[in-house]
Structures are given as C-alpha cells and as structure tokens.
Amino acid sequence: MPIPFLIWAAAAIGLGGSAFNFRKFKRDRDRYNARRKRYERCRERYRKFVESVQTEVDDLHKQRVAAQETLREAAEFLVRAKVKDREFDADFKITPEQFEELKGVLDDLRNLSADFLGTAGIGAGAGILGKSAALALVSALGSTSTGTAIGGLTGAAARSATLAWLGGGSLASGGGGMAAGAAMLANITFIPLAILPVAVFTWKAYKQGKRVDDAIEEMDVDQAKMGRHKAELSALLERVREVSKGVREVEKALKDLLEVSSIEVVKDVYLVWLAAKALAELLDDKSDSSDDEDPGPSTGGGVTSPKSPNVPIAPR
C-alpha cells in the first residue's frame, strides 16, 4: 500500500512541481533577457563613446605631429635669422638666462619626437572592451562559477566544484556554496527515489533563479562602472579638446607670423621665437600633473584611460 501511495503522491507532486518550476524557469529567463537587453544597449552606447574619444585623441596626436612641421619651419627661420648671434637684449630686454633658453628651444625643436602623446592607455581600454565580444551567455549547466566545466576538473577541485554545484553554485555566484552542497548530498541519500527528480528539478529552478539574480547584479555593477568611466572619459574628452584648440590657435599664430616676418627685422624674429617657444611648450608633455605616480586620466601628456569595467557575468 505505501508504495503505490508514494508513487501517486510523487506523480502529483511531480506534475504540480513541474508546472511550477516551468513557470519559474520562464519567468527567470524573461527577467534575465529583459535586463540583458538593457545592459547590451548601454554597453553599445558606451563602446561607441569610447571609440569617439579615441578618435579625438588620435586626431590630437595627428594635430601635434603636424604642428611639429610648423615648429620645424620656425626653427629654420630662426636659424636663418642667426638668432644665436643677435643681441636681443638691447631691443627686448632678454636676460642671459632667456637667451640660453632660446638656444635650448632651438635644440629641442630639432629633437622633438613624434611619440609625445601615448595613446596606449586608451588603446588598452579598447582592448579590454574587445574582450566583451567573448561575452557569450554561459548558461550550460554543470559549470563552475568560473565557467570551467566540472568534467575538466580533477581531485579536490572537482569535488569542491561538484559540491558547490549541488549547493546552487559558489557563494559569490549566489549559490549555497560547498556547505549547502554537502548538506544537500547528505539529504539526497534519504529522499525517496520517486521524488528525487522533482526535488532536483526544483533545486535547479531555484539555482537558476539565483544565477539570474546574480547575473543581474553583475550587470548592475558593470553598468555602474561604465557610467563612472564614461563620466571620466567625458572629462578627458573636454581636456583633449582644450589642448587641441590651444595647439591649433598657437600654431595658427606662429604660421601667420612666419608668413609676414622677415629675418632682417629683429622684432619679427623675436615674435616668431616667442610663438615657437610657446608652441614647443604646448607640444611638450610636462604639465603640472605629470609628476604623479598614478596619473589617472590626463592629457597634454600621456593619455591614460581609466580601467574598463569588468566583463559581465551571465548565468552559469
């Protein structure tokens, strides 16, 4: 008698449980998909924004390289004007120190290298973004919280992973951890076999729900990181534009001066020297923040992008 009763009871529980679990699976899947869709939209906007910043940084780099050509012209002009032999002090009250500086600028102009604006930081940021392409939905059952298939593990690692799997995944991924897994394992021994599939299905549904919760939380964190990074990049973009305009305006002034200046006129030579010196300083990277060990986002010098947010974690 007890056995048929158990079978009927198990069948009833099985049917009811299956319907309940099916609805839960569907609800969790829809919840995950909706959040994922929003997240992907946000990520796409973020990616485009990073690309636009990178483009502007590249443009600034090109602009600075081009400005070097103007500086070279100015250097040639000053060499032809024999600046080193001129006595500016009489006309313009140039101190001996300033005169030495002028000669130094002439040397610097010849030595300016094209690699003053390192875009490696931004490039690295883009590289991290590139990895996002590898972000596929890791939904296969039987994978550890790091996404490694349990079958690929051996010994203690395999045991821990299996216990964690039984416990609904690692604690970090929203599961019950190894302890819950071990307790579950102990219980399973005593559960009547007829109810076992329903219990496992229910457990799986519960675990799936936890995974969805966890994935959504990961997306929340990642989205918040993208938001902060985007804000920092906006500031960086403002800075890039500021430096870019500064270089453009001073270079234009120097070009205008070179067009109308004569090497015979001391005043002309002096004006060209002033503008060339200022442009050389602008192209130089020694802004007042460059002495810091942890530069963060800066420009006018090496452009370092803040760390890109971590990749999101999909339900495993």
Binding site: E232, A235, L236, R239, E242, V243, G246, E281, L282, K286, S287, D288, S289, D292, D294, P295, G296, P297, S298, T299, G300, G301
Partner: peptide
C-alpha cells in the same frame, strides 16, 4: 591655463 591639468582634481 593649459599646463594646469584639471584632471588632477579627479585623482
């Protein structure tokens, strides 16, 4: 102005 990098405020 330009040499005073405001991004240092961020740091």
């Amino acid at each position: 102005i330009i040499k005073d990098n405001p991004l240092k405020d961020l740091r």
